[in-house]
Design a protein around this nucleic acid. Sequence first.
DNA 1: CTCCAGGGATGAT
DNA 2: ATCATCCATGGA
Length: 289
Amino acid sequence: MRLREILVPEFDLGMTLNCGQVFHWQKHGRGFTGAIAETPTYVEQEGHLVRFAGIDAKELAHYFAFDHLLTEICASFPKDAALQTARQFCRGLRIIRQPKWECLATFICSSMKQLGHIRQISLSLRKRFGTARKICGQQVLLFPPAERIADASEKELQESALGYRAKNLRATAQQIASGAVDLASWSGLSDLELHDRLCALPGVGTKVANCVMLFAYERIGAFPIDVWIERVLREKYFAQRQSATKKELAKFASGYFGAYGGYAQQYLFHYARTAGKQKREDSSSVSRC
DNA sequence: CTCCAGGGATGAT
DNA sequence: ATCATCCATGGA
């Protein structure tokens, strides 16, 4: 298949797909295969050049948020050492625009799971319930629609290693399939109202709601606090006040990091996970030698 | 406010 | 081959 190409400054495809915001892209050759909504897509990067197949340039640009002005976003950040280091490390990482149901379902499954495991759950759900398509001779499995999950039995869902999440995923899928909930219609809600509506869904609490707001509703200020971010906040910003509650951390974060807090969060998160791991591997290999 | 079930992979011994 | 560790939600 012939690849088309566009020029995108300030973009790191690999980091964007592997930073824990999306879980279905597979490494293939020098790029990645996956689906953008229902469209099987291949995408690779060489310097500032992005080559792709299967999808419109416009849809690709929308999904990967090539319109986000990273320079301006970073310039708006507070100038503390932790965030400056993280943003250097995460240069080119973009918060993408995911389909709402797919994002919601994936993050319901993500609770109490690590990134690798969330990938496996996503793959298992797509294998069992999703439609198979092809791009560049490679199979791509679409994320199953809510109707398909709603029709599955809890037992079937359990076979994707969902544990107690199966019940929540199914209950939420049923609300969507029945029409009681229309995710698209929530786009116009205020941040607060959207957060409340999401939290009313089974299996969705503050953290998952904030992830969905950030990754599917373009609420770039949303600041999900998981254990990694909580650790970073306590170490770097609350060193004197270890007694601070999670609520206080959230309040601080939403004020301190500004309108693009979600970007700050993702950069701090990815740096803490990736650089932290490298440090651990380095020191363990040193001690072995 | 605090405590804790819950499950499956992954990493350490 | 066992044992500890990772983790968000929801209910007590």
